[in-house]
Every structure is written in structure tokens, then in C-alpha cells.
């Protein structure tokens, strides 16, 4: 929206630009606030036998993965993540529907978490 308003201003449609710009600013502020809330809604807890991950505001989700069921712990970071020093830890089980990921961890913390999870998984590992 902000880009659009700049384009409008440059093409001498100043009146339109004046309408679009505030809307763009409002949207930016709203999504800033929303993303902040969404990030705060993400949480995880390492319990004695399992890992618990919560997320979502409107549609809330809670996933519990027993350490004994983890098949793989993934650590990934996109280019933007890397620039900010962040990583995502994702857990995989034999079920495709598990979907337990913890985004936005500091890379060092994420690596430690992954190692702890892998160790816990090895201790309690069971077959399929």
C-alpha cells in the first residue's frame, strides 16, 4: 500500500496518494501488532517425557510429541532468519500429521534444544 501510494504520488495523483498512504500505514501497524501477538502465542515446554508446542490465537493448537517417538529433529534457517540470527527447530515422527515446529529461536538456543531433544529421543527410543 505504501509502495502504491508512492507510485501514485510520483504519477501526479497526489489526492489518491493521500488516501492510500494512511490506509497503508494502518495496515502496517496492524500487521506489526498481529505478528507480535502471533509470536507471543508460540511457546514450547520440555517436559519429562515429551515436548509440548503451542501456537495460534484464533485457531489454537497444542502438539505433544513424546521423545520416544521422535524420528528426526530438523534445524533450519532461511536467508532472512540467518540475517537475524534465528532458526527453526522441527520435530518429525513416523506420522506425517505431527507438524511440531518451533520458529524464531536464537540459533545457539536452537542448536542446544536440538541436541537435548536428540539425546532425550535416543534414551527413550522405541520402534515404530
Amino acid at each position: 500500500m505504501l509502495v502504491a501510494s508512492v507510485v501514485l504520488w510520483l504519477t501526479n495523483l497526489t489526492a489518491a496518494a493521500l488516501v492510500v498512504a494512511p490506509v497503508g500505514l494502518l495496515l502496517l501497524a496492524w500487521s506489526w501488532w498481529l505478528v507480535g501477538r502471533q509470536v507471543r502465542a508460540i511457546g514450547f515446554a520440555e517436559r519429562r517425557d515429551d515436548l509440548l508446542v503451542v501456537s495460534g490465537i484464533m485457531f489454537r493448537r497444542l502438539v505433544v510429541v513424546p521423545y520416544g517417538r521422535m524420528q528426526l529433529v530438523d534445524l533450519s534457517a532461511g536467508p532472512l532468519d540467518r540475517a537475524l540470527g534465528l532458526s527453526t527447530v522441527q520435530l518429525h515422527t513416523a506420522a506425517a500429521t505431527t507438524d511440531a515446529s518451533i520458529p524464531g529461536l536464537r540459533t545457539a538456543d536452537a542448536a542446544q534444544l536440538r541436541d537435548r531433544l536428540a539425546a532425550a529421543g535416543e534414551q527413550r527410543s522405541a520402534g515404530l
Partner: peptide
């Protein structure tokens, strides 16, 4: 394999939730 609880907005109004147990595909 793992367990999940999901709650939509309407479910939360009614204090309801879905329980999912994940199994192999």
C-alpha cells in the same frame, strides 16, 4: 506418534476442543 489439541474461535466460546492422535500415514 504424537497428540494434538486444536480449538477454533467458536469452539473456545463453547469451551470445546478437538483431540487428534497422530498415527503413521
Amino acid at each position: 506418534q504424537s497428540a494434538r489439541i486444536t480449538r477454533g474461535p467458536w469452539q473456545r466460546k463453547l469451551a470445546l476442543a478437538d483431540l487428534h492422535l497422530d498415527t503413521v500415514p
